[in-house]
Design a binder for these strands. Structure first.
Length: 827
RNA sequence: GCCGGAGUGGUGAAAUUGGUAGACGCACGGGACUCAAAAUCCCGCGGGGCUUAAACCCCGUGUCGGUUCGAAUCCGACCUCCGGCACCA
């Protein structure tokens, strides 16, 4: 052991050792309890950043701790390797996306290895490998068979900058999740996955995931957006047809005085055809369609519309209702048609006021009655029904139920549930992704690629112009093919799949990453899945984490996996902040982990991330904090260096000698620390676990051993040093291994069981009792642990200071919290 | 607008969930070692009052109330910041 701590020497040494001994290779072993720990895999952008560093440091503590606890741990790592930055690099600098991606992977793998993370690299997966994405194509075919994947022409979100379609989940506040451009609408033929079939189940199971943060579950519930209400059919005037609407306020149906249609609603143009309104309607629809999502749905966009030239009838009253096209009605939600009740819906109120449409109050509030003439805004709360025929006098909540029944009985509609969530659009008009395995034949229509023809390999030689349109469409060798049904000339689908499809099942693939008999080796997946602990950023709360839950359900139906919830526990870690903002290249406030490792070593970088704040909170970067962490490791190093010679020689059983008070206190501190660190790791309080170890180290510095080495002292002190080393090892594994070796231990520290604390040793002999008078701390007294309540009261009342405080007061009661506190209440 | 979360020293944070507020670290101040510096080690460090000093007292967890013997923690109202959803019928 060197006198000085040189991280660069020891870190490389132990990384080599772990790799040579294959210490992190996971093997299925039914006799051992498995623990599947997973951190969200990175996109190979070129370099590991602080966010990764933090995420993976957190994960590594848990992995190593569980290994020492005797679990059979699976801790894999891979690459979310398809995606646009690779393609953009190709457009900008001419490097092929594959070359760019694989080189980045090499760099980042090297960086991760330099951090000493306990990954099973044998299981590494890159999603751009054909061996990976061919199974994704296989899933797609199976989903087509079951109608879970389908193609439809629809309005989709289009990012003009990325030149591709985005899923609803990828539009954040009207902006592209990746480049923050304003998203527009476009009508395109697209492939969708039927996540809506699972909306109810996904929602229901939000209540059955106790290991997930409430915040994430709430976001998912919100996103699924379940509304219960009714469908009501409004007959068209002079026609047999009717317009169905969805409403959650069927109790207000008697107050519906007009109808609003989405501009994209097929009836909008159809009804206006041949009327004097036709031109105006057409113009309006065209104008609305051209708007961006923000322009269309922003909160300050004014409500406007146009009469389509036709009317429908209120099914309850028979009253004639003019039909409008209105910009605020969305085609994607409900039926794209809304019954307008201006008195009890604010949007309808504003619209009615603008176009001079009639108001009928049908809900009266309990206090001050409403009148159509004086209302200045809609009344949207509950009340009693009026102007509602047979339902007059009924409470609005009860009326919702009664009216649903009436609708059903009279064939006018019925109960209906609606979800905000839409099917997942997965077509991307980009090159660097998994090709959608579909062939178009002019004679036979849409033909799935036969399973035996998989994979549909992404061609290598294509041109990257950045001009828009998928490069695959320009690649004749790829596009031109034969129809699997008739054998005639046919064309391949040139869109690729959303990269979130890859990440929806990579955790399953880690269980059998090289399996070739199918996507998953059932036996192995059943052994490892579900993921016991998943760790990653909150930004995936509704993207990846919802898609993965959907995929798990589908895979379960295919009989490929056993569980429909893939992640038992989830930890969402906070961002890394510097100078008040998230670290990012554009802000210029990044700290490169590579630099940190070069200057201080991986262990310092790791322990800083873990110590500075609890994992779920944002981490404020501090250069001095890093220095402090490095200082602490040096302190530990010196402590062991100065003592390792004699500790190595101390035989475990050499001293049955009785130990004195100071030693007993030290030993108690050791075992209390063992207890606390274990408990803190279990509940992910790494910062307090580390501070507890620091306290122990401080106590060992305070403890001055006698000159010629009392055997009992050597025993206790030696035990303490070993405990410090063991407890530190999940956090700072390299230095721990080196110190462990210096202490004369043969086996790698990762193979050493986590220490148990001695229950006897932590028993308190004396306990500090706080004495309060009327809730204010006035004195403290140390009493024997076993002292009875009554006796403690006596001791407290006898205290000089307490007597002085109480001399002219009458004691009313005394509250005793055993071993902790006594509160004397007096007048 | 709706739904969450969070506000604690100069600073990052503790307080295992109603029982000593500020552990541990950083910064800062003082001391030891040194010719000197760095490194290291030791001591101090919420604010105020009183004091040579100690002892002691008061205030203090965003603000104002409440519950309780006792509140950073529970309840109500408000303020500020952050996040999610949002013309969803």
């Amino acid at each position: 052991m060197d006198e000085k701590y040189h991280p660069e020497k020891i870190e490389a040494k132990w990384q080599r050792h772990w790799e040579e001994k294959k210490l992190f290779q996971a093997k299925e072993d039914p006799t051992k309890e498995k623990y599947y720990l997973l951190e969200m895999y990175p996109y190979p952008s070129g370099a590991i950043h602080m966010g990764h560093m933090r995420n993976y440091s957190i994960g590594d503590v848990v992995a190593r701790y569980k290994m020492m606890r005797g679990y059979n741990v699976l801790h894999p790592m891979g690459w979310d390797a398809f995606g646009m930055p690779a393609e953009n690099a190709a457009i900008e600098s001419g490097v092929h996306p594959a070359k760019w991606t694989y080189e980045n992977i090499d760099t980042m793998r090297r960086q991760l290895k330099r951090m000493g993370f306990s990954y099973d690299w044998e299981r590494e997966v890159a999603t751009c490998d054909v061996e990976y994405y061919k199974w994704e194509q296989w899933f797609f075919l199976k989903m087509c068979e079951r109608g879970l994947a389908y193609k439809k022409r629809s309005l989709v979100n289009w990012c003009p900058s990325c030149q591709t379609v985005l899923a609803n989940e990828q539009v954040e506040g009207g902006l592209c999740w990746r480049c923050e451009s304003e998203v527009t609408e476009k009508e395109l033929d697209q492939w969708f996955l039927k996540i809506t079939d699972y909306a109810e189940d996904l929602l229901e199971y939000c209540d059955k995931l106790p290991g997930w943060p409430e915040r994430v579950l709430r976001m998912q519930r919100n996103w699924i957006g379940k509304s219960e209400g009714a469908e009501i059919r409004f007959p068209l005037e002079n026609s047999k047809e009717a317009i169905p609407v969805f409403t959650t306020r069927q109790d207000t149906v008697f107050g519906a005085t007009f109808m609003s249609l989405a501009p994209e609603h097929p009836l909008t143009l159809e009804l206006s055809k041949g009327t004097s309104q036709e031109g105006e309607v057409r113009e309006f629809v065209e104008r609305v369609k051209r708007q961006s999502i923000i322009g269309r749905t922003g909160e300050d966009t004014e409500k406007e519309g146009v009469f389509v030239g036709a009317n429908c009838l209120n099914p309850m009253t028979g009253a004639r209702m003019p039909i409008f096209a209105a910009n605020f009605v969305l085609m994607e939600y409900g039926t794209g048609a809304v019954m307008a009740v201006p008195t009890h819906d604010q949007r309808d109120f504003e619209f009615a006021k603008r176009y001079g449409l009639p108001l009928i109050v049908v809900i009266q509030p309990p206090d001050s009655p409403l009148s159509e003439e004086t209302m200045t805004e809609a009344y949207v709360d509950e009340g009693t029904l009026v102007n509602s025929g047979q339902f007059n006098g009924v409470d609005s909540v009860a009326a919702r139920e009664a009216i649903v029944k009436y609708l059903e009985e009279n064939g006018l509609g019925g109960r209906e549930v609606n979800y905000r969530i839409q099917d997942w659009g997965i077509s991307r008009q980009r090159y660097w992704g998994a090709p959608i395995p579909i062939i178009y034949c002019d004679r036979c229509g849409i033909q799935p690629v036969p399973e035996e023809d998989l994979p549909v390999v992404l061609p290598h030689d294509v041109e990257f112009t950045g001009k828009g349109g998928s490069p695959l469409a320009e690649c004749r060798d790829f596009v031109e093919t034969q129809c699997p049904k008739c054998g005639g000339d046919a064309r391949r689908e040139t869109d690729t799949m959303d990269t979130f499809v890859e990440s929806s099942w990579y955790f399953d693939r880690f269980a059998s990453p090289r399996y070739n008999g199918g996507p998953l080796d059932k036996e192995k997946v059943d052994y490892w899945m579900p993921v016991d602990q998943y760790i990653g950023g909150i930004e995936h709360a509704i993207l990846h984490l919802l898609y993965s839950r959907f995929f798990a359900r589908v895979l379960k139906e295919f009989g490929l996996v056993r569980d429909k919830e893939p992640f038992t526990r989830l930890l969402t870690q906070g961002m890394v902040i510097k100078d008040g903002a998230k670290m990012s290249k554009s802000r210029g406030n990044v700290v490169d982990p590579e630099y940190l490792v070069s200057k201080y070593g991986a262990d310092t970088a790791r322990i800083f991330c873990l110590f500075a704040s609890p994992p779920e909170k944002d981490l404020e970067w501090s250069d001095q904090g890093v220095e402090g962490s490095f200082r602490f490791l040096n302190r530990v190093w010196r402590l062991v260096y100065e003592n390792h010679h004699w500790i190595k020689e101390t035989k475990p059983n050499s001293g049955a000698t009785p130990i004195d008070h100071d030693l007993r206190v030290l030993r108690q501190k050791v075992h209390k620390t063992i207890k606390k660190v274990g408990e803190d790791i279990e509940r992910f309080h790494f910062n307090t676990a580390i501070s507890a170890i620091m306290e122990l180290v401080n106590a060992l510095y305070q403890f001055k051993p006698t000159e010629n080495g009392d055997p009992a002292e050597r025993l206790v002190f030696g035990e303490a040093i070993e405990a410090v080393t063991l407890l530190l090892s999940p956090f700072v594994p390299h230095i721990a291994e080196e110190l462990w070796e210096a202490l004369g231990k043969g086996e790698s520290i990762i193979k050493t069981p986590w220490p148990d604390y001695d229950r006897e040793a932590i028993v308190e002999e004396k306990v500090l009792v706080v004495i309060q008078v009327n809730g204010k701390v006035r004195d403290r007294v140390t009493v024997p642990f076993s002292m009875e309540e009554e006796e403690i009261k006596g001791v407290a009342l006898e205290r000089e200071k307490i007597r002085r405080l109480l001399h002219d007061k009458a004691v009313q009661r005394i509250i005793v919290v055993p071993k902790k506190l006594i509160n004397i209440v007096c007048a």
